[in-house]
């Protein structure tokens, strides 16, 4: 397959298929995330990059034999390893009988919310989730460090004019999208608050929220979107999300318990857990949404800069 566009679309389909596999395996939360992230955000980012780098691949393939050797060897070791694995779906495998039963049997009493995945994620293993938020934050900062471009106001005027004329062509799509966006945002809020009871939570909500903004940006142009959502405001929200999450931990520490021990946040332990989970889910949602938007803006901004440079070059070339 030499056409990178096809490759990226196939990757998206692969993600979507694995998401449906996750549903079949009863991992609804994971499926939700994989569909939003793997099939949604990362496919989108790859498409943006392809428009900047060209969509065809050169034919040469280097070191195919070495690669094949490595792959066959690694695969062989893995297959060898599978022979002593517990079989698929067996209920008394060690994985189901050591740590997990407590989550299943006690979480209602200890945390008080029905979605066990959320209880484990936000309370038993809250620190992993904190790490995850920091990973996303790091990626956002990293992308910004690599791609951010200083903006000059006088250029903005020109690009706005170009964008406006360009987007009048897609009138139907623009109107339909405008109608859809409020619903997407509402749905994001629903997912944010419903995470305790069904699949969902801060992470998925953040991605959906970001998707709405990205959709808006794609149709109305980057400059318009930047007028609505200012760059430094997004950065502020991203940092605030991480800080909010961390502060929940620090507050419980100041109340005399360990970091992330939500029991002490309210007079009743279960109420404390509720409050803690609610707050950290907000932290996750804020950081994820703003970092996703930040990443997309940086990619799109870079692309715009490249196009402007090309235009300038062309004009200079013509005048010569």
């Amino acid at each position: 397959m030499k056409d990178l566009f096809a490759v990226v679309m196939l990757l998206g389909i692969y993600s979507l298929l694995s998401a449906s596999f996750f549903v079949a395996m009863d991992a609804v939360d994971v499926a939700f995330t994989e569909a939003a992230v793997g099939a949604g955000i990362s496919t989108l980012l790859m498409l943006v990059v392809i428009t900047m780098t060209g969509r065809s691949e050169k034919t040469t393939r280097h070191k195919p034999w070495l690669a094949l050797l490595v792959v066959v060897f690694t695969g062989g070791v893995l297959i060898y390893g599978t022979f002593d694995m517990p079989y698929f779906g067996i209920a008394d495998a060690p994985i189901h009988s050591h740590v997990a039963p407590r989550y299943i049997n006690e979480s209602m009493k200890e945390i008080g919310i029905p979605n066990i995945v959320t209880s484990v994620l936000a309370s038993y293993r809250a620190f992993d989730t904190f790490g995850e938020v920091v990973v996303i934050f790091t990626a956002g900062i990293g992308v910004m460090a690599l791609l951010s471009v200083g903006r000059r106001p006088e250029e903005d005027e020109k690009t706005t004019a170009i964008n406006d004329s360009m987007h009048e062509e897609y009138l139907v799509i623009r109107i339909v999208t405008k109608m859809l966006i409020p619903f997407i945002l509402l749905y994001a809020l629903y997912v944010q608050f419903h995470g305790d009871f069904g699949p969902g939570g801060g992470f998925q909500a953040g991605v959906i929220f970001a998707a709405a903004i990205i959709l808006y940006t794609m149709l109305f142009g980057l400059t318009t979107a930047r007028k609505v959502i200012n760059q430094s405001f997004i950065q502020f929200i991203a940092a605030a999300g991480v800080l909010l999450y961390g502060c929940v931990g620090i507050v419980s520490m100041l109340n005399g318990a360990n970091f992330f021990d939500y029991n002490v946040l309210a007079s009743d332990p279960v109420a404390g857990q509720h409050l803690g989970i609610l707050l950290i889910e907000w932290g996750v949602g804020c950081t994820v949404a703003s970092v996703m938007i930040m990443i997309f803006f940086n990619f799109a901004g870079r692309r715009e800069m490249q196009q402007n440079n090309e235009k300038v070059n062309n004009i200079e070339g013509d005048s010569l």
Binding site: R102, Y103, S123, Y124, A126, D128, N258, D261, Y262
Partner: peptide, 13 residues
């Protein structure tokens, strides 16, 4: 040993 979230070892971090 420090138990994060106050959950004892193999269940918490």
């Amino acid at each position: 040993s420090y138990e994060l979230g106050g959950w004892e070892a193999p269940w918490g971090i």
